[in-house]
């Protein structure tokens, strides 16, 4: 399969710190790939560069035939890239429905008025939040805000969805629902790159994992193989356990 998302030589420096160092990987259309690594290894920074939140210091990102690196976030969004944030970004003074309408009004669908409201409700239903549609987003619990953020990302009708620890903090029941939800997305053809720590979810959802440590890629293989890689075990558990 030809790659859909292609990342090559991607590098990001913060002053003297190289947060992402010459990273290359690709994701095929319709694939769910896990982006793993210990805290501080540069995963969020990679998502930030793909979504345009941060410009890369070096390297390239391409989606299908379009070069994303160098574009601003609003242009990347219009190319069909949507994301959730590790620390939820709700629009607290807007209603839950309005939060979702934002993605419909300015995304690729450009829906407005009644059509946008109905579509927003559908998305909220999809993430199990329809009963909160009229509330102010700021009044939602943290978990519900995460749901709302996913509904907003889905409303953008993305080709590539970036999830940054979206399943973190869910209780076991919610986790199962969450996993089923993401699995359901795969069948609708969305390509997903997900940063995640919950092993159960990674095993259940990701066919393949890219694993980073200190900004460098240390593994890129089918999930079971990647997780048992000696370099990965060392990175997660520290030298003394290897």
């Amino acid at each position: 399969m030809s790659p859909f998302l292609q990342v090559s030589g991607l590098t990001r420096r913060f002053g003297g710190l190289v947060a992402v160092n010459d990273l290359s990987f690709s994701v095929a259309k319709g694939e769910i790939v896990g982006l793993l690594g210990p805290n501080g290894s540069g995963k969020t920074t990679v998502l930030n560069m793909i979504s345009g939140h941060l410009p890369p210091s070096d390297g390239q990102i391409a989606l299908a035939d379009t070069r994303l690196s160098g574009l601003g976030p609003h242009k990347i969004a219009r190319q069909g890239v949507a994301r959730t944030f590790q620390l939820v970004r709700a629009l607290p003074s807007l209603s839950v429905t309005e939060n979702v309408i934002v993605a419909l009004a300015f995304g690729r669908k450009r829906l407005w008025g009644e059509a946008a409201r109905l579509e927003a409700l559908k998305r909220l239903e999809q993430v199990g939040l329809a009963h909160r549609a009229g509330q102010q987003a700021g009044d939602l619990t943290y978990i519900d805000q995460k749901r709302m953020e996913l509904a907003r990302a889905l409303a953008a009708d993305p080709q590539l969805l970036l999830l940054d620890e979206w399943l973190a903090g869910l209780n076991p029941t919610e986790l199962q629902t969450g996993i089923e939800l993401i699995r359901g997305l795969k069948s609708s053809g969305i390509t997903i790159l997900m940063v995640e720590h919950v092993m159960e979810a990674i095993r259940a959802l990701c066919g393949r994992c890219v694993i980073m440590n200190a900004g460098i890629k240390i593994a890129d293989a089918p999930t079971a193989e990647a997780l048992s890689d000696p370099a990965v075990v060392t990175a997660y558990l520290g030298e003394q356990h290897a």
Binding site: P73, A77, R89, L91, L94, V102, W112, A156
Partner: peptide
């Protein structure tokens, strides 16, 4: 739509730009 864009910008520019504004 412009009014909504302004509200979103006032609230969170990162969300605004990532929504295509």
């Amino acid at each position: 739509r412009l009014g909504l864009a302004l509200k979103v910008i006032g609230e969170d520019e990162v969300v605004a730009s990532h929504s295509g504004i």
